[in-house]
Design a protein around this nucleic acid. Structure first.
Length: 860
RNA sequence: GCCCCGGUGGCGGAAUGGUAGACGCUGCGGACUUAAAAUCCGUUGGUAGCAAUAUCGUGCCGGUUCAAGUCCGGCCCGGGGCACCA
């Protein structure tokens, strides 16, 4: 007796491994991307993980969302590609080497093996034959190859520039990796350094990266807005102010007015960028960033000490402090002057750290009257404020704050009376005529700094030769392999650990054969992850990174799923890569092709309303959940309580509830098994009545509602609700066995299993087999997604609501095709309606067929 | 400061301008059991009432509409992004 009970109990720990093994053996999820297939391709991709050690609940949520989409699309008749791999270069592996003495490679592969096992135990339908690891030679060979293609195109270059340096990670960072002045990984205050580094020219694609966002309706607005603000395009002008007097040795001091014709000095000018050329006549000083190249030349001997001290202090200040909120603006006069391009006036030149070296020209024309920052600065240092714009062109005075709006010009010579818009054009034209200015479009986006002073990354394939200069590694010599970890000094400070490996560094020049040295920096791991979605389509290609014909066939990714934290970083870099590679003719795609058609960014997983963290001790371990409840319960629960985009609150009682639900489904089917026959055809609506009709209708309502929720941005939380509703309707049926009951119930059960299959793949398969269907039709996961019968969705009777002045007062039932007049008559016939109408005058009656009758009344 | 996104029961959350609170969690009451677990049934926004019912109720204040959680205007609060971008 008890053994029979046990046999029939829901036992995920038995079911799940069995079916995982069967699916793998049958190659159920393998795809041949090159084969001809009648089905349309559908590329479903979840962001591949960093092999940190073990999965966390965020991963479980991310990959469940992706997997359910993939499984539904397969049932809907698409040829689905769903691969998985590992973003496996990165600093934690190197830290493990430093702290535990483990080789980064060994540490990484051990983690991958464990996490792969976890993914497999969760039952995700990945084509594991396509697994890629960015840290393996067969992958980073092509990362290096792609670097060389960008280098050839002039999209990869080296330059000395002020860069962000993380003192903890001992490496430089891209702008995108600095969050509020701190390192994105460890929160350390970022320092400024001037270093020679490799960049990718993302700015070459600034316009496309920006404008294309409007062609991506399948992306969340939030992500698009963040990228737009990051790239930020502004239209303005560049203006040259000729330097009046170069700082010279003390002997020349005093030659202030002789600057005009100074030979050799004409070429020295300060160029500024402004979006407001209409305010040009209001310039009362110029401000240079402390890093500006002309600071030294302009500074007079008597100002030298002050300026030097100021610049030195600015350089040493952490970026965070320099731009801190509400910080008072500071600066120092250089003693130098420049000539206003239109008035010829001498304009004093200051150094101020509120001017950013990296934006525009690193110098600004200050217009205190019409810019709040310049106004504040001018007030602090007693500089002139000259009003040149007002709402009507008459002086209104500048008092407590700058007038920053557009208006009409005054105090602007020939341009007086023009409105701001036309003045911008006219003034720029006038500057252009004198060769002192031109229109300029400026971006906030800067080039992507890709070199890192770290070991565990793809080496940059460049060689420096004393006679030939910078020489790219010939393609035939790729990959440039990382040396064995035993040879590396991981604790080297301020330079790449690779620099400590002599046999790596020293190499013959590929060009002249003479002694040369390798670049010792490696690439940002975001470079590796900027093209992995292309490699998945053709992962075993040894001739090239991927076959362009396959890219043309499978890209863009139809559905991408991942965390919002990549809104700018990865998602912008990948877009840049896709476009740059298309322009290099590598992808078989058109120019400006976007890599990801639809993007789903899932929210965080919280525990009882709080962020999970080790320090709070509230981390839920997926392994524990798998052990206790199984994968199907975990998958079902993680989809249940919140829409995918919102944060999800993990509650132990919630998992329990889902486990109970799955047990209930199992019990229901097992109990009914003797009277079920899933080979019966779908019942005919016309022959059904009463309870059978109700169940049949509930089945089609579930199909219709669930399919609609999936179309509507994958609202899986309501999908789960509707599955529960169907089960509730089913479990209300008595256990009988006449033919009609059997037909409508068998149809309902078959449908339930299909609808459940993407979310709970193991249980669905097990029930499918239990009912004899696996042997007949094969896996549940190869069945067609059910479609709703519209006729079955129309109910026999509707509840019609009666309102008085919009307030609910009564209800009655009516047939769905009752006319307006019928409904009004039925409502009026209600005793309650009569009593409410007594003594009132009826102003009008609104009838919404199928919904309500509203009587608008007022006291008689 | 600017730009997004939110604010609905004890909780997570549902609601093409048309019955607010689907579905679940929790709580409470009951059945079954020697007992417990499991399961099943009922109930669960506030107030008043034995009840039928009435009345209030979707952050706040106004507006549009026969009808507003939903649309419009103005605030408040929470979360996120950017942060001297000239």
């Amino acid at each position: 007796m008890s053994s029979i009970l046990q046999q029939d109990a829901y036992a995920p720990t038995l079911i799940e491994p069995r079916w995982q093994a069967e699916w793998a053996a049958a190659g159920l999820y393998a795809v041949d991307t090159a084969a001809n297939d009648d089905r349309l391709p559908f590329y479903c991709l979840s962001m591949f993980p960093y092999p940190s050690g073990r999965l966390h609940m965020g991963h479980v949520r991310n990959y469940t969302l992706g997997d359910v989409v993939a499984r539904i699309k397969r049932m809907q008749g698409f040829n689905v590609l769903q691969p998985m791999g590992w973003d496996s270069f990165g600093l934690p592996a190197e830290n493990a080497a430093i702290q535990k003495g483990v080789a980064p490679e060994a540490w990484t592969f051990e983690n991958i093996d464990y996490m792969r096992g976890q993914l497999q135990r969760l039952g995700f339908a990945y084509d594991w034959q396509r697994e890629v690891m960015t840290c393996r030679e067969d992958y980073y060979k092509w990362t290096q190859w792609l670097f060389l293609q960008l280098y050839k195109q002039g999209l990869a270059y080296k330059k000395e520039a002020p860069v962000n340096w993380c003192p903890v990670d001992q490496t430089v960072l891209a702008n995108e990796q600095v969050i509020e002045g701190r390192c994105w990984r460890d929160g350390a205050l970022v320092e400024r350094k001037r270093l020679s580094q490799w960049f990718f020219k993302t700015t070459a694609y600034a316009d496309v990266l920006l404008d294309n966002l409007d062609t991506l309706p399948g992306w969340p607005e939030r992500v698009k807005t963040m990228q737009k603000r990051w790239i930020e395009r502004s239209y303005g002008s560049r203006v040259k102010f000729i330097v009046r007097r170069l700082a010279q040795p003390a002997a020349e001091f005093g030659a202030r007015d002789g600057a005009q014709g100074n030979q050799g000095a004409e070429n020295d000018f300060i160029e500024v960028y402004t979006t407001r050329p209409d305010t040009l006549f209001g310039v009362t000083y110029l401000a240079l960033a402390p890093e500006h190249a002309l600071v030294d030349k302009l500074t007079t001997p008597e100002q030298r000490d002050a300026v030097l001290a100021y610049c030195e202090a600015a350089k040493n200040k952490p970026e965070m402090e320099r731009v801190a909120e509400g910080k008072a603006k500071t600066g120092v006069f250089t003693g130098g002057y420049a000539t206003h391009p239109l008035t010829g006036e001498a304009i004093p030149v200051w150094v101020a750290d509120y001017v950013l070296a990296e934006y525009g020209t690193g110098a600004v024309m200050a217009v205190p009257a019409h810019d709040s920052r310049d106004f504040e600065f001018a007030n602090t240092y007693g500089l002139a404020v000259r009003e040149v714009i007002s709402s009507d062109g008459k002086s209104a005075g500048i008092n407590s704050e700058a007038y920053t709006a557009y208006g009409v010009l005054l105090n602007s010579g020939a341009f007086n009376g023009l409105d701001s818009e036309s003045a911008k054009t006219e003034i720029t034209k006038s500057l252009d005529d004198r060769g002192l200015g031109a229109r300029k479009t400026q971006y906030r986006l800067r080039d992507w700094l890709v070199s890192r002073q770290r070991f565990w990354g793809a080496p940059i394939p460049i060689i420096y030769c004393p006679s030939c200069g910078t020489v790219p590694v010939p393609e035939a010599q790729l990959p440039v392999k990382l040396p064995a970890a035993v040879d590396v000094d991981f604790k080297a400070k301020g330079k790449s650990p690779l620099a400590s490996v002599e046999h790596f560094v020293n190499t013959p020049c590929p060009s002249c054969g003479g002694p040369a040295t390798r670049e010792t920096d490696t690439m940002d791991t975001f470079v590796c992850s900027s093209w992995y979605f292309l490699r998945f389509v053709d992962p075993h290609n040894t001739e090239r990174p991927f076959d362009p014909a396959l890219i043309a066939k499978w890209l863009p990714v139809d559905q991408y799923v991942g965390g919002i934290e990549h809104a700018i970083l990865h998602l912008m870099y990948a877009r840049f890569f896709m476009m740059a590679l298309a322009d290099a003719g590598l992808t078989g795609s058109i120019s400006n092709q976007e890599p990801f058609k639809n993007l789903l960014t899932q929210g965080m997983v919280l525990k009882d309303g709080a962020k999970m963290s080790k320090s709070k001790g509230n981390v839920v371990d997926p392994d524990e959940i798998l052990k206790t409840y199984g994968a199907d319960t975990a998958r079902f629960f993680i989809l249940s309580d919140s829409p995918p985009q919102a944060d999800f609150d993990w509650k132990d009682s919630g998992v329990e509830g889902c486990f109970r639900f799955l047990q209930k489904v199992w019990r229901l089917v097992v109990d009914w098994q003797p009277v079920l026959d899933l080979t019966l055809p779908e019942p005919d609506l016309a022959t059904l009545s009463g309870e059978q009709k109700a169940v049949y209708r509930a089945t089609h309502q579930a199909i219709s509602g669930i399919s609609a929720d999936i179309e509507n941005a994958f609202q899986f939380n309501t999908v789960v609700s509707k599955l529960r509703e169907l089960v509730n309707a089913l479990s209300a049926m008595p256990k009988a066995s006449d033919a009609e009951v059997c037909a409508s119930r068998s149809f309902a059960v078959a449908t339930l299993i299909k609808l459940l299959a993407p979310i709970c793949p193991h249980m669905a398969e097990a029930l499918w087999e239990k009912l004899g269907m696996f042997a007949r039709t094969g896996s549940i996961h190869t069945q067609a997604w059910p479609s709703a019968n519209p006729a079955a969705l129309v109910p026999d009777a509707l509840t019609i609501v009666v309102q008085f002045n919009g307030k609910l007062r009564a209800e009655f039932t009516a047939s769905p095709d009752a006319s307006k007049a019928d409904l009004e008559a039925s409502a009026l016939a209600l005793p309650k309606v009569q009593s409410l109408l007594a003594g009132q005058s009826l102003v009008k009656t609104i009838v919404v067929p199928g919904k309500l009758v509203n009587f608008v009344i007022k006291p008689a």
